[in-house]
Design a protein around this nucleic acid. Structure first.
Length: 269
DNA sequence: CGCTTTTGACCCGCGC
DNA sequence: GCGCGGGTCAAAAGCG
């Protein structure tokens, strides 16, 4: 498993700046009571749980570590979940079983049925402390380090997700800070996953190699978090969601319970 | 009526 | 410098 996992880690979808792609993979061994998570550097932990009708994927913030393969039992205590959970996505369980899944990492799709969180990636800037983002100006693009995916697919991902260049945009002579981003790929019939926050669509664009990516902004005042949702042209079952920025508030469905922002929640979202 | 979505125009970075 | 293409803006339309 470990060797397979490391091979998968090298199977990054996106070119990253000055570093190999950091891709987290979720390994769901058949006939196993637990899932194996290989988190990307400085990324979220995530796990899935299943009932007869739904598959729930939960993203948790975690401390950056290197090459830490983590086994998470399905019966994680409720206390731990409630204290750490920042976003839970529940999908309905219905998926065609005649899907062509040969091109997917085998250990990634053998887990149950229904839409699944297949992979997750966090941009290099996320690995830095929040004050270090400005330092990435002037860096050069790295050469493409590719693993299992075909060249054209790899290129398509890194290109249309805009993760290949970490150069800062300018706004009237002033550098625009590129917010930390991460993306994950799910197999889902639903485009916009319920992550607990309210989003307002502000754009949709026809882009090469993808199907009309949609752009969303968090509806909360003073919250600049954006997300981009797209389906892969080569596999419309796959949804890639890219988050940019950090929420300055709790998920909307928590507002009734607590108005105070949680430091844990703010770790990432 | 207020909020959300749609969509064409515009801006700007990047490659040539 | 120019053209292309991704991302954003903002007015209009849609919807509850």
């Amino acid at each position: 498993m470990a060797s397979t996992s490391q091979a998968m880690l090298n199977q990054g979808l996106f070119e990253d700046q000055e570093a190999p792609p950091q891709m987290g993979f979720f390994s769901f061994p058949p006939n196993s009571g637990s899932l194996t998570l290989i988190p990307p550097l400085g990324c979220l932990k995530a796990f899935s749980s299943s009932s007869s009708t739904t598959t729930t994927s939960t993203l948790l913030p975690c401390i950056p570590t290197l090459n830490n393969n983590i086994n998470i039992n399905n019966n994680i205590s409720e206390t731990l979940l409630s204290s750490l959970s920042t976003a839970t996505t529940t999908y309905s369980k219905h998926r065609d079983h005649h899907d062509d899944q040969d091109h997917l990492p085998s250990s990634a799709y053998h887990f149950g049925s229904g839409p699944q969180l297949l992979s997750l990636q966090r941009s290099t800037s996320n690995l830095w402390s929040w004050g270090e983002v400005n330092d990435c100006l002037g860096s050069k693009r790295s050469s493409i380090i590719n693993g299992g995916e075909s060249d054209h697919q790899y290129h398509d991902h890194r290109h249309h997700l805009g993760l290949s260049t970490m150069k800062m945009k300018k706004i009237k002579g002033r550098r625009k800070v590129r917010e930390p981003r991460f993306c994950f790929k799910t197999m889902s019939e639903v485009d916009v996953l319920d992550d607990g926050y309210k989003w307002r669509k502000y754009g949709q664009k026809v882009v090469k190699n993808t199907q009309h990516p949609s752009y969303y902004r968090c509806t909360q005042d003073n919250c600049r978090v954006k997300k981009r949702v797209e389906r892969l042209a080569e596999d419309p079952r796959m949804v890639i969601t890219t988050y940019e920025g950090r929420h300055v508030h709790s998920p909307s469905h928590d507002l009734e319970d607590s108005q105070a922002p949680s430091p844990l929640n703010n770790f990432f979202w």
